[in-house]
Amino acid sequence: MEVVALNIHQIKAIVFDLDNTLVSSNLDFNWLRAQIGCPKEIDLLTFIEQLNCSQSAAAANQIVLKHELDDANHSTPMQGCHDLLGFIEKHSLHTAIITRNCFEASLRKAEHNNLNISRIISREHFPPKPAPDSLLSLADEWGLDSHQILYVGDYVYDLQAASNANMPSCLVTHGKANTFSHQASVTVTELDELLSLLLDHQVSRPPLD
């Protein structure tokens, strides 16, 4: 996969993953896999989508939905979240959330944590990450080139989605070791570190005529 270089002076939009990027998440994917019968080597959403029995698929989706809603009710903002969103608002940058969660749980998380982001794209709207469709749609909607959008996330799917959309990416590690940091355009420990980087360069979007 190709890592797209970040030129921070060109950034006009910052798009976020949701879970463990903007807000905390304690989704137990091992428990979900056991409940649904999904093998460890298969992506959970892909497994459900490929179930031949519609009743089994509906039951699996209901289990995932309940787990996601419970997680939303117990979520908290990640370190630096609100300060970074305040910077984005102050400097008139475009922003959005792209998540593999369902829309109902994503909206609940955004409201529960007072996230000032109205544009939320979930797995109901576009193929889930690492597919680039949602990112490409935002670029078209905002009239921006791919290199003007920075995608921020905490997992390899986020980095792959950005690369597939020919966009730079920021990996938030929370101080944990991983095997995919080299796939990110820039790596930070927490969101406040990204905010410091933006402040150093005073990224902003010029007002519309």
Rank of each mutant, 00 (worst) to 15 (best):
G80H: 11
S181M: 02
L51R: 09
D200H: 10
W31H: 11
S181H: 09
N113W: 12
H147L: 04
S92E: 08
P128F: 01
D28Y: 09
S169Q: 09
S146D: 04
T46R: 07
I11H: 03
P130T: 12
Q55Y: 08
S75T: 08
F87C: 08
C170A: 15
I63S: 05
D28F: 13
G153N: 04
G80D: 05
E141R: 09
T189F: 05
P77Q: 07
H174F: 05
V186M: 13
T187R: 05
L191K: 10
A105C: 11
E104R: 15
K129R: 13
P168Q: 03
Q202Y: 11
Q55I: 06
E41Q: 12
A162V: 07
V4T: 12
L138E: 01
Y155L: 14
N116F: 01
V186R: 02
N114G: 01
N52H: 13
C170S: 11
L144K: 05
H201S: 11
K109M: 12
V3G: 01
K66N: 10
R205E: 01
F180M: 10
W142K: 04
N116T: 05
A5F: 03
I14K: 01
I11W: 05
N164M: 03
A13T: 08
E111S: 13
L199T: 12
P132L: 10
N26T: 15
L27Q: 08
V3I: 13
E41W: 02
A184R: 02
S92L: 11
D28P: 11
S185W: 05
L18M: 15
V172I: 15
V64T: 05
N114I: 01
E104W: 01
L93N: 07
W142L: 06
T76K: 15
E2R: 14
E2G: 06
